[in-house]
Design a binder for these strands. Structure first.
Length: 478
RNA sequence: CGGGGUGUAGCGCAGUUGGUAGCGCGCUUGGUUUGGGACCAAGAUGCCGCAGGUUCGAAUCCUGUCACUCCGACCA
């Protein structure tokens, strides 16, 4: 595999991963900074990635019976305050609107950090009978959380996401929904983004504010830090009680419905960067790459290269997202440029190729070159895109496996991370919050989740040595 | 919110003891090139982050402030 670094102006990831990340984000033209801290411009190339993600996910939601809606951006303080745990969780990081023009508002409005309260207010108006249930709603919006430290895609003060909010007749149905959506997220990450994830449940201390239980998918980044890639929450009837949402059930008794919410955000783009990127730049999963194949004509002044390149583009354009770069930059410059931007497949077409009715196809993740007859390009390009997807996935999985350690003591946890670097640590836990906090304090690795796929590492808690209840994945997180 | 670093041309940086603002890349024009970031020639580009102060004179010294960035704590 040829992974030589050919671009000097990206900081190498081993040298400084954080700097590498910001270099990529800027040089691949994904974002621009603005005069408001933590608020970024998502540039066309970055936004196109998001649009692809959105389109595919939205399709998955619709297939499973969800409908899109749009709630307002403002939440009156009194509404936010209705559910105690929820306010406590979000109040410290909300932005407030206090004036309309120069008039001070009667009641200040917060800019939504998440929309549970708005959905609840609405549900209390439209849900009356079991016949009105379930409501399976979703919205694509931006939300605001006044974070102290910010990083493009990973933590910004305003970010784009989707939030699903559903309301059901029974607890059972709501729990099923919570699990189903977590499954959809996992499938999306693995099959679309080529990003392996671990499905699990969050511990009590790590739950969403106001939830009965929170489920998450956790991914491991190239530097060994964990990224929470998506969450799905079961609310029980807690919100319904706080917001007085009731319905007449099948026995004609007044009853409280059960709710869920679930979301993924543009943070996933950060996940793609840190999962697949390398020292030559971004590497995009083909399914969401704005350009899937770029055609680079070589020696354009000779003969009919441009014309041939255009023909090839026409031939491919109904099959893949393709572009010809006929700018007068040198071929070498273009090679580097499109690798930086993570384009999965490059097609080189020069006079020598045209003579032989062929072209050269290069895959981004391993730089493998294949000479292909111009008659077969369409099928080969499709094969190659699949190869890139699979290649990215197995590379990411390999990294995760290499950085997954089984430990029975906290000293061993520290030891493994010092020797082999950060990663996922699988270790047993007794279930007490004291131990959970102590592990984090001692090792720096917090609980990521209690995976659905349990493995018995030992029978004692990694911290206190008392009988263990569950296996937990620990790690340092973004 | 604590600790460090950095603000000078679009980007990356230099600027000594306080004395008229520099380099590389990029950009523009013309020509030659083109299979891994091409070359030659001629150009254009500055509120030296911002606000005060010291001084005959400040990118340089002092005070304040803002932004970006990294490392922690908190969070999608």
């Amino acid at each position: 595999m040829d992974n030589r670094k050919m671009v000097d102006d990206i900081t190498s990831m081993d040298e400084d991963f954080a700097k590498w990340y910001t270099d990529i984000v800027k040089k691949a033209e994904l974002v621009g900074y603005t005069s408001v801290k933590g608020c970024m411009v998502i540039r066309p190339y970055g936004y196109a990635i998001w649009e692809n993600m959105q389109r595919i996910l939205d399709g998955m939601f619709k297939e499973t019976g969800h409908e899109n809606v749009c709630m307002p951006m403002f939440i009156p303080e009194s509404l936010l305050n209705k559910e105690k745990d929820h306010v406590e969780g979000f109040a410290p990081e909300v932005a407030w609107v206090t004036h309309g023009g120069s008039e001070k508002l009667e009641e200040r409005l917060c800019v939504r950090p998440t929309s549970e309260t708005l959905f609840c207010e609405h549900y209390s108006q439209i849900v009356h009978s079991y016949r009105d249930l379930p409501k399976l709603y979703n919205q694509w919006v931006s939300v605001v959380r006044w974070e102290k430290t910010t990083r493009p895609f990973l933590r910004s003060r305003e970010f784009l996401w989707q939030e699903g909010h559903t309301i059901h007749e029974t607890a059972q149905q709501a729990i099923e929904e919570t699990e189903k959506m977590l499954g959809i997220y996992a499938r999306f990450c693995e099959e679309v983004l080529a990003m392996p994830v671990i499905k699990g449940k969050k511990t009590e201390s790590d739950k969403f504010a106001g939830a009965v239980s929170t489920y998450a998918i956790e991914a491991l980044m190239h530097d060994g830090k964990a990224l929470q890639a998506g969450t799905s929450h079961y609310f029980g009837d807690g919100f319904a009680r706080a917001f007085d949402i009731t319905f007449s059930d099948r026995q004609n008794k007044k009853s409280y419905p059960h709710q869920t919410s679930w979301g993924v955000s543009t943070r996933l783009i950060g996940g793609i960067i840190m999962t697949h990127g390398d020292d030559n730049g971004l590497a995009l999963p083909p399914a969401v790459a704005p350009i899937q194949a770029v055609i680079i004509p070589i020696a354009v002044h000779k003969g009919n290269v441009i014309e041939k390149a255009r023909q090839l583009e026409q031939q491919l354009k109904n099959i893949v997202r393709v572009k010809v770069d006929d700018s007068d930059n040198s071929p070498g410059w273009k090679f580097a440029q499109y690798e930086m931007k993570g384009v999965p497949v490059r097609i080189e077409l020069g006079p020598r190729d045209i003579e032989n009715n062929q072209c050269v196809i290069v895959t981004r993740h391993n730089r493998e070159k294949t000479v292909v007859s111009l008659d077969d390009v369409a099928t080969v390009v499709q094969q190659k895109l699949k190869e890139v997807h699979d290649g990215l996935y197995s590379k990411a999985l390999e990294n995760r496996n290499r950085r997954t350690y089984d430990c029975t003591t906290t000293d061993q946890m520290i030891d493994e991370m010092t020797k082999k670097g950060d990663g996922f640590i699988r270790a047993m836990w007794c279930g007490s919050e004291e131990c959970e906090a102590a592990v984090k304090e001692k090792t720096g690795a917090g609980s990521r989740c209690i995976p659905f796929d349990q493995v018995q590492i030992s029978d004692k808690c990694v911290c206190c040595g008392k009988p263990a209840k569950t296996m937990v994945i620990w790690g340092k997180a973004y």
